[in-house]
Nucleic acid binder design. Structure first.
Lengths: 205, 205
DNA sequence: TAGATTGTTAATCGATTAACAATC
DNA sequence: TAGATTGTTAATCGATTAACAATC
């Protein structure tokens, strides 16, 4: 029952459950079952029940799950019941799109600092934020106590910037650069590379 | 040895291998080993050898793998040795960023058609492409024979547009909308939702 | 040759599923 | 009560790893 024993693959499915539950709630539904949720997601009902059982008992026999209650519990488990302030490094096209993205709202994250090394970009405004000089990044992130960052810099800068983020105390990095980066134990990295996803599909075509 | 027997999880790692190999090649390296590649990626050397063994024998005992040769083979296996033309639906901030993204080059993909339903966007230029009316999408995609599409529309439009893409003959959809979509057998969907990735990290913080 | 590394087998490990008692 | 669905156990299934003969 301690966190260490929870398989990472289970943790990875919780956000997907959470997203589907939020959707159901938006649609006015108040109760669901592992069967219904599974059908929506293409996952077996047994797996959903098993996954949830790692964390406690959230349902009721014969009835299912109160969507609002289960949502709250999953948010608590994933620690997204409060809002994490996120640093965004690299304010190119992708960085702009992320800075304007309104999909973070109510899902536990808010971009609160922008950094770029390009003098032409430093000081400009993107949404409500001003782009700060990457040279001040370590200091700034540390002072604000930011623990999560998104990396949207070119591939050949990614490892260097990642090292700085680690130095600044960041513990989770969402890496948009199409390159693997290495970090010390205790620092998590997630990758978003559209091409790897596309290549995974073309195999089957 | 037929494709049906290859585990999907293995297919999912091939693009990662390919990316690392390209990087090594860029760095002027010409030979690598499963050990070295594994260390770069945080994967065991045995797993890399096992994964590759599903498709053939690409290395040489005592030496390792010729990076150029292995790259070619992986490109062929993933069918990215030629360029896929990709339709992009939804030309908001994210769509713009994707349209301008130069990371597709030499990795098997090229965006060749943009669609949006917003009259204010239809006819405008993004890069070298003109935004087309979403109303003509099914026809246009079918006529061009496009098989791959990226979906960057709001969540509440995603399923409807996905249905149209399927109707148009698309077999692979990269979905940026934060919602699960359902498609018939034979149509693959991959998801990119930054928030699910972030939530997966905060669990451990 | 000596050293290194592959491809593959068998063992281990872990994840998924089926089934069902408990119970709402 | 009858029907439905949970949480959990045990069985099944699949993926990873360790080990090593083959051989460059």
């Amino acid at each position: 029952m301690t966190f260490r024993e929870i398989p990472d693959i289970v943790v990875g499915r919780l956000p997907v459950y959470l997203r589907a539950l939020s959707r159901m709630m938006q649609e006015g539904q108040s109760i669901t079952s592992s069967k219904e949720l599974g059908e929506r997601l293409g996952i077996s009902s047994a797996q959903i029940r098993k996954d949830l059982s790692h964390f406690g008992e959230f349902g009721k026999q014969g009835t299912g799950y109160q969507i609002e209650y289960l949502t709250e519990q999953l948010q608590r488990i994933l620690k997204v019941n409060t809002e994490w302030e996120v640093a965004l490094v690299g304010v190119g096209d992708l960085g702009h799109a992320l800075a304007h993205y309104n999909g973070f709202v109510n899902r536990g994250f808010r971009i609160s600092a922008l950094f770029d090394a390009d003098p032409a970009k430093i000081g400009t405004s993107v949404g409500e934020l001003k782009v700060m000089d990457a040279a001040t990044m370590v200091e700034e992130i540390r002072a604000r106590g930011l623990k999560v960052a998104m990396l949207a810099v070119p591939a050949d800068k990614a490892q260097t910037v990642a090292n700085q983020l680690v130095e600044a105390g960041v513990k989770g990095i969402l890496n948009y650069a199409p390159i693997n980066i290495s970090t010390p134990d205790g620092v998590r990295v997630q990758y978003i590379d559209p091409v790897t996803h596309l290549q995974r599909m073309t195999f089957y075509l």
